[in-house]
């Protein structure tokens, strides 16, 4: 009986996270079109509902009712599982993300490792989609993407090693709690190079502009998902935007104190006490999502060899050097971050 209640409790938690997440994904696509539109002196979607506010819902209905076309000579089973493999890890990661001081579905000890392991799985979706489609463009796109994701995953992992060293824990709640004490106690300041690298590697991991060579419309049509349509395409789309939100929320947790208030230890602290932690986390996450959209609107696509050079020859050495420097800082217990 107790087991049943436990499972029900977990199910309710999952629904509480996943349903709003889908809504946020839908409105991230809307805000992306609107923001990029305004940045390029256009209006963006305006037709469905006031200010085009119902556009994402119309898009969802369109994608769900379209036919899923399976190319001839495609490996049918893999072709249809690839989008699922892409989507499942990016949903699963949300189980360990602390959304406020009280709410996290699974507060596990090795949370940071869990996130790293799951985000490394999404590359299978890309590779299998490219291979199973039996299309040259899709295959080229998946090859590019696989090499890119592996290159940037290493820099990303090292950036997280820096966070782990500073916090002394792999548990995400403890990482947030160790950043207590106002905006200058957050890790973005002592780990600034790692923060920048994590952010850029995050853009590369999610295959978004300016690192979107796996899609590269001008060269290989749409890259690995060129053969997909209908629901299968919608799943790739969903996974991409979910990963975008995930990277934003992870940057806010690792380097910007998660749900901690920025006014801690200042004059405003007593006035802002009533604001729940979830609001602060949302504000931080939304600003990073905005930065991602901003990047897409302003930067041209990287050349492929430059992407590789940036990942292996620039990011990797910088992270290793900074981890070494951080070790020295921890040894000398530099205030106020490394007092243990």
């Amino acid at each position: 009986m107790n087991t049943i209640f436990l499972i029900l409790d977990i199910l309710i938690d999952i629904i509480m996270v996943v349903l709003p997440l889908f809504l946020i994904v839908a409105y991230t696509t809307y805000s992306e079109r609107k923001i990029i539109g305004f940045m390029q002196s256009r209006l963006g979607p305006t037709r469905v509902g006031p200010f085009g506010i119902l556009q994402p819902i119309a898009d969802v209905i369109k994608l769900l009712t379209k036919e899923v076309i399976i190319p001839s000579n495609a490996s049918k089973g893999l072709f249809l599982t690839a989008p699922i493999i892409m989507l499942v890890p990016s949903l699963l990661v949300w189980s360990v993300i602390p959304l406020s001081e009280y709410f996290v579905i699974a507060n596990i000890n090795a949370g940071l490792l869990f996130i790293l392991a799951l985000t490394s799985l999404s590359v299978y979706g890309v590779i299998l989609a490219g291979w199973a489609s039996n299309s040259k463009y899709a295959f080229l796109g998946s090859m590019r993407s696989a090499a890119q994701i592996i290159a940037y995953e290493i820099a990303m992992g090292f950036a997280l090693v820096g966070v782990l060293m500073a916090a002394g824990s792999l548990n995400l709640q403890e990482i947030i709690l160790s950043q207590r004490g106002g905006i200058f106690n957050w890790y973005w300041l002592p780990l600034f190079p790692l923060f920048v690298i994590y952010l850029i590697a995050g853009v590369a991991e999610t295959n978004r502009a300016p690192f979107d060579v796996s899609e590269g419309e001008s060269e290989i049509v749409a890259g690995f998902h060129v053969e997909y349509s209908g629901v299968a395409f919608a799943m790739f789309f969903l996974a991409e935007y979910m990963n975008l939100i995930l990277i934003s929320i992870l940057v806010s947790i690792m380097f910007f104190g998660g749900w901690l208030s920025p006014f801690e230890g200042t004059f405003f602290e007593s006035y802002s006490q009533w604001i729940p932690g979830f609001v602060w986390l949302s504000i931080k996450t939304l600003s990073f999502i905005f930065i991602f959209l901003w990047l897409r609107a302003t930067l041209p696509r990287y050349r492929y060899d430059q992407i590789m050079r940036l990942g292996w020859k620039i990011f990797l050495p910088i992270t290793i050097i900074w981890i070494f420097l951080e070790g020295i800082m921890i040894y000398y217990k530099v205030e106020p971050w490394f007092v243990i």
Binding site: V123, A147, I150
Partner: peptide, 18 residues
């Protein structure tokens, strides 16, 4: 178990598949 997924599934086998 997590390292097995991270290293073997996430990196080694990707190159293998490649």
């Amino acid at each position: 178990s997590i390292i097995l997924i991270l290293v073997y599934v996430g990196a080694v086998m990707v190159l293998f598949l490649f």
